[in-house]
Design a binder for these strands. Structure first.
Length: 224
DNA sequence: GCGACAG
DNA sequence: ATCTTGTCGC
């Protein structure tokens, strides 16, 4: 990606974040009994290709209903802060192949806990106009503060994230993506976390499927 | 100038 | 994220 495109992408994020941060104060509360389908998206790489997968899970029973993958060449290299421009397109392609539309989407990465409040979870939420939650394995941006035993992350004047511990010694950074409140995002993620799994079920499965799919591409490109 | 930097 | 075998252990 050229320097010019980099600056253009950053300016786009800055422009969109103004709107998102205004809306954030009035993101709607969630009625857990109305949540039926949750999707998780993740990507893996191999043999020069990018494999993005989406997994559809029934929220109440935590059971897998379907999964889809889309394989393509990575559009741009990885640039910290601009992950969405590398991975959002393949996620959206995979999500459109699902047999049903999810009520909420879990994204592997950050949402508002991003330098310009426009992490990949927020980006995807804006594009699809749906509630999204960021779930990352590493911190990116924001100030951590412990309140009543909860490790909260403040970013851009918003309590935007919380650190969970799915497994002893492992941290998970949950953040507001779009159209959802932090309390609800945390409730949803906790509900989908299972004993022994480092990631909530939809992301655990998406990670597995994307790695398997990417490995096929790697093997294919290798045996020549 | 130096270090940091989701996946 | 990926490059990478076997090996230790429940």
């Amino acid at each position: 990606m050229s320097l010019f495109d980099y600056r253009r992408a950053v300016r786009l994020q800055e422009a969109l974040s103004r709107r998102v941060l205004e809306e954030a104060a009035s993101f709607p509360g969630l009625d857990p009994s109305r949540v039926r389908l949750v999707a998780g998206v993740d990507a893996a790489y191999g043999g020069g290709v990018q494999a993005g997968c989406a997994v559809l899970v029934d929220y109440a029973s935590s059971t897998q209903l379907a999964y889809t993958c889309h394989v393509r060449e990575p559009p741009i290299p990885y640039v910290p802060g601009l992950l969405a421009f590398r991975e959002a397109p393949v996620y959206i392609k995979a999500l459109r192949k699902l047999p049903e539309n999810p009520d909420i989407i879990l994204v592997d990465g950050h949402g508002l806990t991003h330098p310009r409040a426009l992490g990949i979870a927020t980006h995807i939420g804006l594009v699809l106009g749906k509630p999204t939650i960021g779930v990352a394995k590493n911190p990116l941006y924001g100030e951590e503060k412990t309140v009543n035993g909860r490790r909260l992350i403040t970013a851009h004047g918003v309590t935007a994230g919380e650190i969970l511990e799915p497994v002893k010694g492992v941290k998970l950074y949950v953040s507001i993506g779009y159209l959802i409140r932090l309390e609800d995002a945390v409730t949803v993620v906790k509900h989908l976390m299972k004993p022994g799994l480092k990631l909530p079920l939809p992301l655990h499965l998406a990670d597995k499927y994307s790695k398997n799919t990417a490995r096929q591409g790697y093997i294919a490109s290798k045996k020549k």
